[in-house]
């Protein structure tokens, strides 16, 4: 985070001028879901251990429940279920990655948190078209680093799509 300085104006345009057009590197928090996934570190607020999840009835299957994050009721998304990867068991290594997307704070349940890494922009390719489907535009690219593959997620798209699907699900629920 320390190498990013926001322009005094705080305007989105100015930030984009400086950083948006040609990011020299991606600063990521990566975690494991069978494959390695990464989200921008500036969207990660903190990482907490799994515990005290309250199940919310009549919610989508990928909604794991809510947790008490210092007095705040935080929704937790089961990322495996959301990405339609065969679901794993919650283990000692499982963590909740607390992300801040826009004005929303949402927890992502992952198998394990691996690293905080920097991937030079040159090492990131857009995901091969063959693996992308209509509703998988939340994958922004694939980072290649020392033989590892890191799938970059766009949380905003991931969560926005949720909303649409939920709306549809709602109409035939009760």
């Amino acid at each position: 985070m320390s190498d990013i300085r926001l322009p005094a104006s705080g305007l989105a345009e100015d930030i984009l001028v400086n950083y948006g057009e040609k990011p020299r590197e991606f600063h990521l928090v990566t975690f494991n879901l069978g494959e390695e996934y990464g989200v921008p570190i500036n969207q990660v607020q903190e990482i907490v251990r799994v515990g005290g999840i309250t199940m919310v009835p009549n919610s989508p299957s990928y909604m794991e429940g809510v947790i008490n994050l210092r007095g705040r009721v935080l929704p937790v998304l089961n990322l495996r279920k959301r990405l339609r990867i065969s679901s794993g068991k919650i283990s000692k290594a499982s963590r909740i990655v607390v992300t801040e997307v826009g004005s929303k704070v949402i927890g992502l349940l992952v198998d394990a948190v691996s690293h905080v890494i920097k991937v030079p922009a040159g090492f990131v390719e857009s995901a091969p078209e063959e693996v992308l489907e209509v509703d998988t535009d939340y994958i922004t690219g694939v980072g290649k680093l020392n033989g590892r593959l890191i799938i970059l997620l766009d949380l905003e798209k991931l969560l926005r799509r949720e909303k649409i699907e939920v709306k549809e699900a709602e109409t035939d629920s009760p």
């Binding site: 989508p60 809510v66 969560l159 629920s173």
Partner: peptide, 27 residues
């Protein structure tokens, strides 16, 4: 009363959440 985040839609039958003295959440 604390509102439930509606990113994943409203859950039918649930009006909100509250945090109990022991830190647990009740709906």
């Amino acid at each position: 009363i604390k509102p439930l985040d509606d990113t994943f839609g409203k859950s039918y039958g649930i009006a909100g959440a509250s945090i109990l003295g022991d830190g647990r959440i009740v709906l």
